[in-house]
Amino acid sequence: MFVCFRRIRKCQLRQLIMMCFLLSVIKVYWESLDNNVTSHVKSYSFRLLNSLDFISANLTISQEEARKFSNHRYLINHEQKCVEEDVLLLLLVKSSPENFERRHAIRSTWGNEVYIKKNLGVTVRVLFALGVHPQPTARKRLQQKLLQEDEIYQDLIQQDFLDTFHNLTIKLLLQLGWKNAYCKHARFLMSADDDIFVHLPNLIRYLQEVDHSGVKDFWIGKVHRGAPPIRKKDSKYYVSHEMYPWSLYPDYTPGAGYVISRDVASRTYQASLTLNASIYIDDVFMGICANVIGVSPQEHVFFSGEDRAPNHICIYNQMMTSHGHVKDFHELWKLATDPAVQQVSSGLFGKLYCTIAKIRLLCLLHPVKTYPCKAAFL
């Protein structure tokens, strides 16, 4: 009886210790979650009730000061890339000097200008925007390889700034400045990372429809509304109070991939020449510039969020972008351009099948943050 009692006591002690451990974990997680939710609710509520003009007003500087952020000399340039062409879309891909394989994969899949012209009947210009490698020892070797690469493909634009995460806003200024200087007539500008997949056939068809309507103030992508700055110092996206003292950002689209119209590109570039670009999160700076000109981003449910799109034929049929791709560009391009993809969702039964499939992928099984549930019903 005594032995049994001792066993019960030991069992209860283990349960108590385990319970305390679980409660500690839940407490830490809940505090983190609660702070995150609270900051989002506060910032979004403020966004609904107030204008954000005070942000741009406080970031306004002289044009002479502003030009210091974008006054970098070109190391590689192609001033004639858009000359005498009716360009529907200028697609500027943010890449790093060492990402040779990614650029090659993009050229032979969704960024293939010849394929687009031959099969879609429009002119798209694809260029890769680069800085210089931050390590001096690797810079000279890589620079020689970049010059050889560009001699073959003629599609790199590079300026003399360090190609690092904290200079992404400088790279955005490179894109806006190049568009304004050398391809002002292109009807749309897309900014994209080199690890996303762009379904060019779907995007081109969509932009042609939009273009026929004479659209202005056009900016589409995955929209973040009322997002607060991240103040955790261990986060990649940490922004100090000194750099950005306010509790929320203007609405913006993630820099992985978004599209703006010609007029927005021109006016955003002009706005960038009056603002302090020291904030290094480029998509947030884009939101600040757009707020100056009175343009807000519009949500497109098939622009990817933080992860890659589900692997399903009914998704490819409407996909615009999918994030987080490096090794599977060729496989995805083959599936996306297969004529059978378009046929799957045709007809009453095809549409019903794809709706059910998308509900399962986007609503019921939703482990990734790509397309919202409402995309299943489109």
Results as ranks from 00 to 15, higher is better:
I288N: 02
I157D: 06
V132H: 00
Y258G: 01
E299W: 03
R107D: 06
F377Q: 03
S56F: 00
Y74H: 13
I157E: 04
T268E: 09
Q135C: 10
H325K: 01
M190T: 04
T274P: 06
N119P: 04
A129G: 11
K216W: 03
R7W: 10
R360S: 13
S108W: 05
Y249W: 10
N71Q: 12
L203G: 07
S266R: 08
C4G: 13
A57Y: 05
C289W: 01
S39W: 02
L174V: 05
Q15P: 00
Q159L: 05
F69K: 05
N71S: 15
H104D: 14
Q175V: 15
M243K: 05
N77G: 06
L378Y: 11
P372Q: 07
F197S: 13
L147G: 01
D338M: 04
K233S: 12
S51G: 09
F285R: 07
Q15E: 14
E85I: 07
K233Q: 14
P245I: 07
P134A: 03
K10H: 08
P134Y: 06
N58P: 01
L174C: 05
L275V: 07
R139G: 05
A192G: 08
V210T: 08
V132G: 01
S304D: 10
F349R: 04
F128L: 07
N77M: 07
N167C: 13
N202I: 06
K171Q: 15
V25T: 04
I116K: 03
L189C: 06
R125E: 11
A357C: 13
Q143I: 00
L23E: 05
A256T: 11
C11F: 10
D150T: 09
R47S: 12
L348M: 13
N35G: 03
D53T: 06
A256D: 04
K94V: 11
I26H: 06
L335R: 12
L176C: 14
R205I: 01
A129Y: 02
T123I: 09
K179R: 15
T321A: 05
A290I: 00
D211C: 05
I26L: 11
L365V: 08
I220T: 09
I76F: 03
D160H: 12
H185P: 00
H312W: 02
V37R: 10
A336W: 09
E331Q: 14
R107Y: 10
Y237D: 11
H330L: 07
K140D: 12
I230L: 06
A192I: 02
F21A: 14
V37T: 09
